[in-house]
């Protein structure tokens, strides 16, 4: 199966989404990501039972924080899919890319923000 998906995704592998920390997400934005999405296992399928549910809570907390500080919680999402869902993985990658493209580059990357103006997108798995 050779499925194409948006080439602008940078995958950051983690042992489990339950290991997702607010800092990892914020760091991705500080390092230039225009958007970040967390791809966890299907709900109910966590090998560690609650990892993806815990990640969901943290993602929601960071979305709220991003709204408060003006970057916008829309730039962060959480998806659930299994390792066997290749087509769904590509679909999510394309969906998130389209969403972030519609939102435009992160204002942190604009010249006024003092960055290089690059257009990267961070993804965590």
């Amino acid at each position: 199966m050779r499925i194409q998906y948006s080439p602008n995704i940078r995958i950051v592998e983690m042992t489990c989404t339950g290991n997702i920390d607010h800092r990892v997400i914020l760091n991705a934005f500080e390092e230039g990501a225009d958007g970040v999405y967390v791809a966890g296992c299907l709900e109910g399928d966590c090998h560690f039972q609650k990892g993806n549910f815990r990640a969901k809570k943290r993602v929601n907390a960071v979305k709220k924080l991003l709204d408060e500080i003006g970057l916008g919680g829309d730039r962060l999402e959480m998806y659930n899919l299994s390792a066997a869902q290749g087509p769904r993985f590509a679909e999510i990658a394309n969906e998130m890319t389209a969403k972030i493209k519609a939102l435009g580059p992160s204002p942190l990357n604009s010249p006024a923000g003092g960055c290089c103006g690059c257009s990267k997108e961070g993804a965590t798995n």
Partner: peptide
């Protein structure tokens, strides 16, 4: 430690967005 780093990151982002790093 964790909350300190999160707050630092959030403040940096906030100020950068305001054009006052």
């Amino acid at each position: 430690d964790k909350e300190t780093e999160i707050l630092a990151s959030a403040l940096r982002i906030m100020r950068k967005l305001e054009g006052n790093p």
